[in-house]
Amino acid sequence: MTARFAATELNLSNYRTERRYRLMLFSMTAMLVLPVLIILAILILKGAPMISWEFLFEFPRRGMTEGGIYPALLGTIFIVVVDLIFAMPIGVAAAIYLSEYAPDNWLTRAINLAIINLAGVPSIVHALFGVGAFVIFFGFGTSILAAALTVAIMTLPLVIVATRESLQAVPQAFREACWSMGASRWQTIFTVVLPNAISGILTGLILEVSRTAGETAPIMFTGAAFFLPFLPESVFDQTMALSLHLFVVSTQVPEVPEALPYGVALVLIGIVLIMNAISIVFRSYLRGKKKW
């Protein structure tokens, strides 16, 4: 240990070791993020030729080996919208409770543990729950409603965590100033806390859209169908969905042209990554115009 301060040769060798480790860690990081870029490149290369107006806005034909993805695209939008109607209010309310009301007690710890577990329970178990609860018990059948509820519960932690973080970033002094003027808790939350946490809530919403669009397992037995020759008419109808469509055309349908699933994958990942990119840009934009 004494040598650490002594010889310059040792310092030099330390320096070399350090550079070696740094390089090693950098290449490990690169190898982790490189696949995203490679995968994106391959998907674009092979999938881009498929993308056309017809592909996006026509029904599949000939056992899904030809034609477009319109009903799947629309179905994904339906599921996302119904999902948001449930996930956003519940998620934001839960975040407000945890950030603004919850005392430090066993119940709050239990809620936090439940949130971690909602996020950690396998998606297929959520699917089983959706089947048992919404499809069978509540009698929604396999429907957009049942599928959206199942995904909403599964992705709830996303909304809660994003919202809670942004609520907690609002300085406590603002709340105390507001309370001391005689504002109720809710008036304080509504006039001071929420307006300043809106960026986090919107980030949560965008991520929720992205996650919901990509989920497959929780919707495949609760409301998404392999193929439907018509569009759903209400939330109690089944629908096709983009994510399940990718699974179907890449594994279940014989003699699909090679480019077709690449096209579906590209559209799906396009939606997801654009949503995430928006949330990232949005976040850094809002970070730049903080009000305090």
Binding site: S243, Y262, I269, N276
Partner: peptide, 24 residues
């Protein structure tokens, strides 16, 4: 940049990963 890339990596849906496994 690295953090953004890691975030995007996390965003890729599982069915797309499955498709990547199946094909690429």
């Amino acid at each position: 940049t690295l953090k953004v890339l890691v975030e995007l990596l996390a965003a890729i849906p599982s069915v797309v990963w499955g498709f990547i496994g199946l094909s690429i």
